[in-house]
Write a protein that binds this DNA or RNA. Structure first.
Lengths: 161, 161
DNA sequence: TCAAAAAGTTTGCCTGGGCATACATTGTCA
DNA sequence: TGACAATGTATGCCCAGGCAAACTTTTTGA
């Protein structure tokens, strides 16, 4: 199955083109991981936003989600149904949205990562506007290990202020 | 149009629930930005990978893209057609894939960001495996400003090695 | 109180990015 | 040289996440 492959590889790597790439299966796992992260990304954003709205305004209404996510209410409605199915929120028709315990946990988690990334970006000298923008994108792609490293750095930098 | 809105806001913010949230429209723009980034993310990954393959093996074949992206060849084929339409690659049936000038530029750009993020993560003490993993996810969500900040830090840390 | 505005829902549509399956082409080597 | 393995393509399907438009329910204020 891999006879010709191996030969090729040997040929290629031992001559003009050095094979300095990651093993294909490792590479594949990385991308699969990214794809999976993508799936939960939006979900986390909604849940986090719902938590923020509840804290700031006392309740989370679809119209506000729609404004803040920059999508139509139809889209929000569909999303809420999915969050409900996943057991992250509860919602009666025409009422505002509530988080389940699982939802609250996810929101906490997400928020804490978000804050760490944001503080960290500020700490390394990124402007407030950009920091906010990038934190939104980055927060979903940092592992616990990286978050921990960022927290250490942000704290250290704050200490030397 | 905003009479009731304003009243509500006033009421709410001046009583039990402090409004410590971003303005809705700013928030919306942030999310729209993230959504847009998402669209180009996969495209960048493919283009970058194609460039890497060309450099490492002399050519980029669909089968290898499929292995490394962890998707089927059908998916790769569809993607290649889209990259072609966007003017990033050229491809004849049953031949390997080539980058256009635009494609090469995108690959360069993407690669340089990728490398910076990766070095940076290493520099702040993240393990090699995690750094590779996270860099893959983060690279598409960092602005030029943040990349610059990361580069500064990574270089400084290298200097003090 | 009740009509109009606001909020929420439903329906039907589109696109992107997956998959499996079947088919076509190319390359290899017995 | 020709059969078979490897590679590439086409078709048809699915799901997620958008939208617009029409409709229903709730809220508001004259």
């Amino acid at each position: 199955m891999a006879t010709k492959q191996d030969k090729d590889l040997e040929h290629v790597t031992s001559s003009e083109h050095p094979d300095e790439m990651l093993a294909p299966d490792v590479h594949a796992r990385q991308h699969q991981h990214v794809r999976k992260a993508h799936e939960t990304e939006l979900v986390e954003d909604y849940v986090e936003l719902i938590a923020d709205l509840i804290d700031a305004k006392g309740e989370a209404r679809a119209v506000e989600l729609s404004q803040r996510m920059g999508v139509t209410q139809a889209t929000v409605g569909k999303m809420i149904r999915r969050l409900d199915e996943r057991g992250l929120v509860t919602s009666e028709p025409y009422r505002s949205i509530f988080l389940t315990d699982a939802g609250r946990r996810m929101a906490e988690d997400s928020r804490s990562r978000h804050i760490t990334v944001l503080r960290f970006l500020r700490a390394i000298g990124v402007s407030e506007t950009t920091a906010r923008q990038d934190a939104e994108g980055i927060e979903h792609h940092v592992s616990d290990e990286t978050v921990a490293a960022m927290r250490r750095l942000a704290e250290k930098s704050q200490a030397t202020d």
